[in-house]
Design a protein around this nucleic acid. Sequence first.
DNA 1: CGAATTTCGGAGTATACATTCCAAAAAAAC
DNA 2: GTTTTTTTGGAATGTATACTCCGAAATTCG
Lengths: 211, 211
Amino acid sequence: MDMNNPLNITKKPKLTKKGQETRSRIIVAAAELMYEQGVARTTIEDVQHKAKISSSQMYHYFKEKKELILEVISYQTSKIIENHRRYLSDLDSFEALYAWRDFIVDIQIKRNCEGGCPLGSLASELVETNAEVHQEIMSSFFEWEDSIRKGLRYMLNRGELNSNADPDKLALALLAALQGGLLLTQVRRDPKPIIIALDTMIEHINSFKKI
Amino acid sequence: MDMNNPLNITKKPKLTKKGQETRSRIIVAAAELMYEQGVARTTIEDVQHKAKISSSQMYHYFKEKKELILEVISYQTSKIIENHRRYLSDLDSFEALYAWRDFIVDIQIKRNCEGGCPLGSLASELVETNAEVHQEIMSSFFEWEDSIRKGLRYMLNRGELNSNADPDKLALALLAALQGGLLLTQVRRDPKPIIIALDTMIEHINSFKKI
DNA sequence: CGAATTTCGGAGTATACATTCCAAAAAAAC
DNA sequence: GTTTTTTTGGAATGTATACTCCGAAATTCG
């Protein structure tokens, strides 16, 4: 829910089913392009071509480029959260933790280590550009961090970790290692950095393993 | 030394002392602007104003924007390497490791946690744009990683760490934690992520401490 | 069915921005 | 001191790109 407008007071023109389809086609196309080439280098015209729409449609569904960007951030965030939930909502063992790691690493390998993190790259490019965008990105990362923390808490509650383990700290450190690892993997075109970054973190978590 | 041109064969026009000053004024101005607002949003005109030069000067010293960008990458890299060397070249204890951490954290605090890593943000924005730029960024990160590795090797040789410690892995993991921590600190405008990311890594290194 | 609303096509606009050009001032070389 | 080279000023150009506008087709709604 949009906390700036909890009652949904803005009178947006209603969207037909067809309209909704077109709108999401635009968002998906924009998301892919912005992921591949960055936001600044992604032209509205590029998006139009990819989504097979005219410019009147573009501005029918989005007031301006910034609005489209906000939607792209939110789209990428939900995609990530959903994909990771499968692993994080059921973290009952170190095997499960390594399965999560494999999931992340495999994506990078499939992509030839190009592109980095769909959210991290948006973040780096956009944090300092606009307050609203900044806010959206910050919320996204909080949500992601939270889902990791919940996973670790679950491990703790299951008795896999001893009481010295601090899920708050570990979640933040894991997310940082993930982000930095993905950046270095992207730069080097080599899965090694993300593997080592995550493995080192998991090894550290292993030091809190209950015997 | 530029490995693509070890004998310096290219006939660049000689630079007068005044010319060199102007040239580096341009690079410094560009570096600051690109750090604050990103490369794409930094206009040649912006750089001209900040460096107090005319556009003929800009293109007298740099063939095109890309060439200026390459110089900015190299400038930021040497600044980082030099600043970190003071801490890393003499890593003789865990106190020294924490001093390095403090150095990194203090910079962020002084900057209100804005801007992130001067190299990391360039990397994220530019890796996928151009092969030459990509190469330059990759070399920069290798150099940085190497200086961290040497620091850790020094600790190992001094007998601070036991033989289970792998300086190669730890250096890469530390750099990843550093990059991810800085990104999250930038996003949250809060030093906490970089502190926790580095501290967690150092704690892990501590598990290799020789008793 | 007929009116209202939404979706779409595509030409048009305005501006921002990288780059070029011409010539003059300043400095270096001889 | 004259010639050559480098540095500088600033106007001009061309293109890329975000955004607007108008009317027509399609769809929804009563």
